[in-house]
Simulated scan of single mutants.
Amino acid sequence: MKLGVFMVLFGGRKLEDALDYVVSKGLKAVEIGTGGNPGNAHCKPAELLKDEAALKQFKDAIESRGLTISSLSCHGNPLHPQKHLAQADHEDFVNSVLLAERLGVEVVTTFSGCPGDHEDAKYPNWPVAPWPNDYQEVLAWQWENKVIPYWTEQAKFAKEHNVKIALELHGGFSVHTPATLLRLREAAGETIGANLDPSHMWWQGIDPVQAIHILGREGAIHHFHAKDTVIDPINVNKYGLTDMQSYTNMLDRAWQFRSVGYGHDVKTWADIISALRLVGYDYVVSIEHEDGLMSVEEGFSKAVQNLQQVLIEEPLGEMWWV
């Protein structure tokens, strides 16, 4: 495995300066934001696709430092019921796939999106309760009319360009659990896989190690984020795991994102890394920082230190003792 980082953390720095900083920390891979919520501070696909010299300069900046690109990431909502918003995120996704092919990057990471509850809806509707039965009807309509048709078409498109789609399992979107990912994968094909982020498993009450086993046995993990979550044992009893308070209200929230090692101990992260190796995932572990108690630099550095203790980097050898 290689240790990497989601470069949107350093969107305020010039690309070359950010890459030098990452190299100084001993990392070997970068995940590049190409639109959607992460933005495109370091990489504007539509421009690079039209400018061969700029594309070569971008590629050389990364390769000359001994780095590889683990993924181009354009987390958005291409199923948004407001058509202009959906179209913008769809275009980011399409351009990311085309650029990934040109760069030889095998993964594009995004969200599944979430539709509304009918054709003329204005906002996404995320049903997470089976009753009242209205929610079941909304869920069925979404999957049959929006989620499966859209991603079946996009999976075919990505496959034609030798790119895999890693959908991040994230609350608020149609694909947010191992089961919903596998449901879509069964319908749309194996080009669809997960960008598995343990932080989003913990706050939903899912054990990340078990999620790795469930998805890994199906070969359905295409990318991996390293971010932690802590659940407040008192606040969770008041607000529940679906706490709608702002992330900025850290003192009262039921849970919050933390840097690796500040929500769960290093042994837990060792179990996660071992589970990834066990199911055959030997790609990049990409650090993401969304810790409201630490600066980007400190949170990132702590995550690097903790993950370097447990990352399994060397290829598997023979079991000489067997």
Results as ranks from 00 to 15, higher is better:
Ala155Phe: 03
Ala140Val: 03
Leu139His: 11
Trp203Ser: 05
Thr177Lys: 15
Ala187Ile: 04
Trp141Leu: 12
Trp143Glu: 04
Ile148Met: 02
Ala211His: 02
Trp143Gln: 01
Glu144Arg: 06
Leu139Trp: 14
Val175Gly: 11
Pro198Ile: 12
Gly172Tyr: 14
Asn195Glu: 09
Ala211Tyr: 03
Glu190Ala: 09
Arg183Trp: 13
Thr152Gly: 07
Arg183Ser: 13
Lys159Gln: 15
Lys159Tyr: 07
Val147Ala: 01
Lys156Glu: 13
Ile165Glu: 06
Gly216Glu: 12
Gly205Trp: 00
Thr180Met: 05
Ala211Val: 00
Ile206Gln: 04
Leu167Ser: 08
Lys159Cys: 08
Ser199Gly: 06
Ala140Arg: 05
Ala179Asp: 14
Gly205Tyr: 04
Pro149Asn: 06
Val147Leu: 02
Ala211Phe: 03
Ala140His: 02
Gly171Gln: 14
Ala187Met: 08
Gly205Val: 06
His213Pro: 04
His170Ala: 09
Ala179Met: 13
Ala166Gln: 11
Ile192His: 00
Glu153Arg: 11
Val138Asn: 01
Arg183Pro: 08
Leu184Ser: 12
Ile192Lys: 02
Leu196Met: 13
Leu184Lys: 12
Asn195Tyr: 09
Ala188Asn: 08
Thr191Arg: 05
Ala140Asp: 07
Gln142Tyr: 06
Gly205Gln: 02
Tyr150Phe: 12
Glu160Cys: 08
Tyr150Gln: 03
His170Ile: 09
Val147Ile: 07
Thr177Asp: 13
Lys146His: 14
Gln136Pro: 04
Pro208Ala: 10
